[in-house]
């Protein structure tokens, strides 16, 4: 599986030059525009393809994710951005028909390699989902779940500390400190999503994947989560999928634009939103479709 990635990047996309594909046509074999590599990568993806049965969901995507940055994935629905995200912690494994090829390395180790344990991978690459999905347990147990299963806390005081720290970092402590034993499902939507973030950071991962974390929330809750993401950047690499371009512009440093399974363009968020180089990106940004 681990091929020579850098050589393969340029393999496809000979027929369509940058900016030449009209938006109404599919960008088959599109070559990515912009700089896909970074100087301090955590995750390096090369030529990732995902098939669901006969259907190809993403095609030849190559992208680096850097330490301490927020990278946003944008694009019209069905463009494969969530699928790509779920490759990074091998959550696609839970879908029987999904097949992933190409290479994805985390700190130089291929995550789809036999030697890479999926449990450990997911402990290192945490994930927050589109819909808040707290377990039907108490607030405390929700946060303590990860440390418990991984054996991260030696005793109860240590666990209490992890729970408290995680809730504090997720900005939820003040709101829930008096009702830690109430069910997590009883919190409001925004609180639930922050609980899920607290749950994720309680494991101390290296990367946090966020799959449209605010799509089910109201604007105020969204603003809180966005602030939180900005803070979390100090310690983690964050990869966020969003269908809101404004959100991408607000929270991310880099932005990747996906279109029908192709990674069309990557660049600094400023550049993508002010000066997109690819026609498809520009059309999407300017709202001509999407």
């Amino acid at each position: 599986m681990a091929t020579e990635p850098t050589e393969m990047v340029q393999r496809t996309g000979a027929t369509l030059g940058p900016g030449s594909a009209p938006p109404e046509r599919t960008a088959q074999g599109q070559r990515t525009v912009g700089e896909i590599t970074v100087s301090n990568p955590v995750i390096v993806c090369r030529n990732v393809n995902v098939h669901y049965g006969d259907k190809q969901a993403i095609r030849d995507v190559s992208l680096d994710i850097a330490h301490n940055e927020v990278i946003a994935m944008i694009g019209p629905s069905g463009c494969g951005k969530s699928t790509f995200l779920r490759c990074l912690n091998r959550l696609n494994d839970t879908i029987p028909t999904a097949k992933v090829t190409g290479s994805i390395t985390l700190d130089g180790v291929d995550v789809y390699d036999r030697k890479q344990d999926v449990v450990q991978l997911r402990a290192r690459v945490g994930m927050v989902f589109q819909k808040p999905n707290p377990f039907p347990k108490s607030v405390y147990e929700n946060v303590a779940y990860g440390p418990r299963i991984h054996g991260l806390a030696g005793d109860r005081t240590e666990l209490d500390e992890i729970v408290q720290t995680s809730l504090m970092r997720a900005g939820l402590w003040e709101e829930v400190k008096d009702r830690l034993d109430q069910p997590g499902t009883a919190l409001s939507g925004g609180q639930q999503q922050r609980l899920c973030i607290a749950r994720t950071i309680a494991v101390s991962p290296e990367v946090i994947l966020m799959d449209e974390p605010c799509s089910a929330l109201d604007p105020i809750a969204t603003a809180r989560i966005e602030d939180l993401i900005d803070e979390l950047r100090q310690n983690y690499a964050i990869c966020i999928v969003t269908h809101s371009m404004q959100q991408a512009a607000r929270v991310s440093q880099r932005t990747a634009y996906f279109h029908l399974g192709d990674l069309i363009e990557v660049g600094s968020t400023d550049q993508i939103f002010t000066n997109p180089r690819h026609k498809l990106t520009e059309d999407y940004i300017t709202g001509r479709f999407g």
Partner: peptide, 24 residues
């Protein structure tokens, strides 16, 4: 930002600690 646990004075970051404990 406080660390989740009071680790002894080693250079281990929380993420490294997680890796080690999970491995174990």
């Amino acid at each position: 930002m406080s660390e989740p646990t009071l680790t002894p004075a080693t250079a281990e970051t929380p993420a490294q600690r997680t890796r080690r404990l999970v491995e174990k």
